[in-house]
Design a protein around this nucleic acid. Structure first.
Lengths: 241, 241
DNA sequence: TCAACGTTTCGGCGCAGGCCGAAGCGTGGG
DNA sequence: CCCACGCTTCGGCCTGCGCCGAAACGTTGA
């Protein structure tokens, strides 16, 4: 009886947060925030396809539950995912959403762009993310076995040279190199501080360009060259597996 | 516009599965199945605190969405989580559920047992799971850095001697050693094939005993001795951190 | 063959919650 | 100083869905 009560309590807590994500409008807002950037309430209302008052209610619930954090800036209010844990939960739900009995996938061009390269909260995902992880593994800069990994000493030097300092900031507060299950490719890519640093540096170098309308990122000409020369990325990384 | 449609589509897919988990009754059923064992529809109705007809409807929905798989056996129907992905999604939602602003936790004795040692789908969690991961790391049988890990060659030999064969079965189909975020301790324990093998072998040796009413597992006298001798588990592993 | 049991289907009740329009703040620009 | 703008609060509508009782179906055991 007591065991049941304990189960019921934990189940209710799970249900509360799952129900928040379980509304299509809120899910679309959260999906829009998976790009890692903060968006205003108005932008999120647009992404959800609803009026401003309704969006405000949804955002208040998400913020109160701790899924979103708010930042006032003038007469705008910027909302962002409050932690990488939220993004991870969204990703794991995405993985489940793909495994259903429905198999038909009318892949559009936009969808294809997302599969090629996109941001996953604050790091890279898609075929580019996986190809980078493979290349770093081949050069033994990260040690990946069965989908998990750690940074080698040589890797640490390599990343520092590339411009990613893994020791700065909140050391130990966040996993350095985490494996994140890729929604479209069903393999793991690099997350954690390392994944975030690689994305930031690639953007700063002009190797990647964000798409203002979606999570997709484009690889620039310098990026193609740089990823091939510095990381040893194969030329056919865009090809579907 | 197309980008939005793509976002809306993905958001709706996420919302569909999240809404399934987002009902308290269904969440409690899923939590009951987190023990890894298959339960009958009647047992699940009892766990959810509802009548048999209502439970049947919930279970049909969960099965159709691919979250549960069914097995007919006489006049019983056994339901189980259809994959470890479902368990992982539940765990990540649990982690989110704990981070809310609500901080009060009236920890009961049953809850305490769950925090000490429990199953997480098919592997060990709680303080025991974390202590085992720590001990294996100290002996360099697994390599854990920043919450992720891999099995070392010495570890492979050690686990084979212990009775866990990591090469058999569906090799490569499932990650060998995955890091799973612990709901109660906020640290990582061992999952994947290695975690599942350790739990199975410990149960077979009589070191652990399942609790028929909850996910909690008890450590037997032989288990205390064995974990200390073979794994080098410290005696005070039960102490809260 | 019949009765008991576990499970599912059906029909109807009731409420939680998503949605909007109108109105009420607070901020920034003219 | 006032208006325009972004956002929130309030009130009311309405759909969706979780719930149960009654009844049907299939299996097991006598």
């Amino acid at each position: 009886m007591l065991a049941v009560m304990s189960n019921i309590a934990s189940g209710n807590a799970i249900a509360a947060v799952a129900a928040l994500i379980g509304d299509p409008t809120r899910a679309n807002m959260l999906a829009a925030l998976m790009g890692g950037r903060a968006l205003t309430a108005g932008e999120l209302a647009w992404h959800g396809g609803i009026s401003a008052p309704t969006a405000s209610g949804h955002l208040a619930k998400l913020a109160e539950a701790g899924l979103l954090s708010v930042e006032k800036q003038g007469r705008h209010r910027y909302y962002r995912l409050s932690s990488a844990n939220v993004a991870q939960a969204m990703e794991s739900l995405m993985a489940l959403a793909g495994t259903g009995p429905k198999r038909h996938r009318p892949v559009g061009p936009k969808d294809e762009a997302l599969r090629a390269a996109r941001t996953c909260y604050d790091h890279l995902a898609g075929r580019l993310g996986i190809a980078l992880a493979d290349a770093l593994r081949a050069r033994e800069h990260v040690h990946l076995a069965d989908g998990v990994g750690a940074v080698t000493p040589e890797g640490e030097r390599f990343f520092r040279e590339f411009g990613v300092d893994l020791t700065s900031g909140s050391l130990g507060k966040r996993p350095l190199c985490r494996a994140c299950l890729d929604w479209s490719e069903r393999r793991h890519h690099l997350a954690g501080r390392l994944g975030a640093g690689l994305l930031d540096r690639s953007l700063a170098l002009g190797w990647l360009a964000r798409n203002p309308d979606s999570r997709a990122v484009a690889v620039t000409a310098e990026g193609e060259r740089g990823f091939a020369e510095i990381f040893g990325l194969p030329e056919h990384w865009r090809d579907p597996p």
